[in-house]
Amino acid sequence: MIRKIALSTLAAVVLLFYLPFAAFLHFTTGGELRLPTAGVVVTTLLLAVATAALAIALAYPAAYYLARRGSELEFALLVAPLWVGTLLKAYSLLVVFVLVERYFGLSLWGTPAGVLVGMVYEYFPYALLTLYAAVEKLTEGPINAARVLGASKMQTFLRVELPLTTPGVVAAFVLIFLFALGDVIMPAVLGAGKVYTFGSYVWDLYFKARDILSGGVMSTALAGLSLLATYVVFRTVRYSL
């Protein structure tokens, strides 16, 4: 009986998340598809790449430290922002931006930099968790071996530890890149409508143009991209273990 419930639930999940791909059929039979402009796509891609790179660069040292010598409290404190809603974070940053502009004369609201800060703030915990898992899996063996064979601590890190954690870095990059591609809140709140991304475009298709089918195709295309990327990540991670 439990198996039946579980299977029906799984079926519901499949239906909901994978059936929208059927929306493509509408356009193969002659519907008009509204595509975003190249500018929107470029802005989105650049922002997503920058977000992923920055989040990983910030998270790697912390993840390394946590996996080696960190306390539970430090881990908890760094991961806990995961539980704070995106909108709340965006709103807090908005307030901070006001203060920054007042005291440092640096204007972030409505700029790509401001949106970037918001996205890094939002997705940092994902980078941390993924990298932490990768570093924690490293065993003492290869590290000790490198040290005994005459590598300095820095050399050991560059030649042994970093290559061994590359799958984790790749996984984190793809994950955050995807999240950032579809982000709506940060561009809307921190970009003040001036930073227009793919997420904003899909949003407007639905809420302003009421073109649900074009919106559907756009978002399923995005979803398809994530399917592919997730597959790549799983393969990378599996073969390196």
Binding site: I2, A6, L10, F17, D183, I212, S219, T220, A223
Partner: peptide
Amino acid sequence: YALRKVTHLAISQVAVVMPEVSEALA
């Protein structure tokens, strides 16, 4: 509990990493 096969989990895993706007629109 009931669906321990890896493929079952993968279906959910993919659903979880769907871009938020996609799943909302779906």
